Simulated assay, not measured.
Amino acid sequence: MTEDEVLAEFRSSQALLEGHFKLSSGRHSAHYLQCARVLMNPERASRLALAIAQKIPREVKSKIDLVVSPAMGGLIIGHEMGRALNKDAIFVERPTGTFELRRGFAIPEGAKVLMVEDVVTTGLSSREAMECVRAEGGEVIAEAALVDRSAGSVDLGVPFFPLVAINFPTYAEDELPEDLAAIPVTKPGSRSEKK
């Protein structure tokens, strides 16, 4: 899929939002990609996962034992990537602020893991989820995502295979443009503010 085709999927599902958003990374943007909306249609979610799977080189795919995604954003696309790759898909979650395995999930010692996210901006959630996988005995060998919003700056320490790179500008709190600062901020992501 081309970037235009992926953006068309986001637009047709009303998942490309405009306004003033505080992203889970803490940065601000005039655009937000609501992946839950683009993934709410099972056929579309499957199609997007297959397109991501096509981006992963065969030599990497052949090593994958397990797909892991961080909750909440990575749940649906992680599950669909498991289906596309014919691998089990589990998730890590943060009931107390730190990623952990729950629900009886386990990672076999030495399992080769594909980490799957919806959107990567700074890579913080991915790196934290990878720490959890390593602590449980797994080895993250690559990451895949629907969207790379990092403007090519993210370093996850493993090969990264996003479906598309969409470079809407993001801003730190103290560098907001006047027109964006004038719009009330919305925090649409799944992660709550740290106290």
Rank of each mutant, 00 (worst) to 15 (best):
M1Y: 11
E5R: 15
A8H: 04
E9T: 10
E9V: 13
R11D: 07
S12K: 14
S13C: 11
Q14R: 14
A15S: 06
L17C: 03
L23R: 02
S25C: 01
R27V: 06
H28T: 04
S29Y: 01
A30R: 10
H31L: 07
H31C: 06
H31W: 06
A36I: 09
R37K: 15
V38Q: 01
L39C: 11
M40E: 08
P42M: 12
E43Q: 09
E43Y: 09
R44Q: 10
S46Q: 13
S46A: 15
S46Y: 09
L50M: 13
K55Q: 15
K55I: 11
K55L: 08
I56P: 02
P57F: 05
P57C: 09
R58T: 13
R58V: 14
E59F: 08
V60S: 02
V60F: 04
S62I: 07
K63Q: 14
K63H: 07
L66K: 12
L66N: 09
V67F: 07
S69N: 04
S69F: 05
A71S: 10
I77G: 01
G78Y: 06
E80D: 07
M81E: 00
G82I: 08
L85W: 02
N86A: 14
N86W: 05
K87C: 11
K87P: 06
D88L: 14
I90N: 04
E93W: 10
R94Q: 15
R94M: 13
P95L: 13
P95G: 13
P95Q: 13
T96K: 15
T96W: 09
T96N: 13
G97T: 14
G97H: 05
T98Y: 13
E100V: 15
L101H: 12
R102T: 13
R102E: 04
G104M: 07
A106M: 09
G110W: 03
A111L: 09
A111Y: 04
A111T: 07
L114S: 08
L114P: 02
E117L: 08
T121Y: 02
T121N: 05
A129D: 03
M130F: 10
M130Q: 11
E131L: 15
C132E: 09
V133P: 09
R134I: 14
E136N: 14
G137T: 12
E139H: 08
V140G: 06
I141N: 02
I141L: 10
I141R: 02
A145P: 00
D148M: 01
A151L: 02
G152R: 03
G152E: 03
G152A: 02
G152F: 05
G152D: 04
S153R: 13
V154M: 00
L156K: 00
G157L: 06
F160S: 04
F161V: 08
F161R: 00
F161W: 02
L163R: 00
V164Q: 00
A165G: 11
A165K: 07
N167C: 06
N167R: 09
P169F: 09
P169Q: 01
P169R: 03
P169H: 05
T170S: 04
Y171R: 07
A172D: 12
A172P: 00
E173R: 10
E173S: 12
E175F: 06
E178P: 12
D179G: 12
A181V: 11
A181L: 14
K187S: 12
G189T: 04
G189Q: 03
G189C: 03
E193Q: 03
E193M: 02
E193V: 09
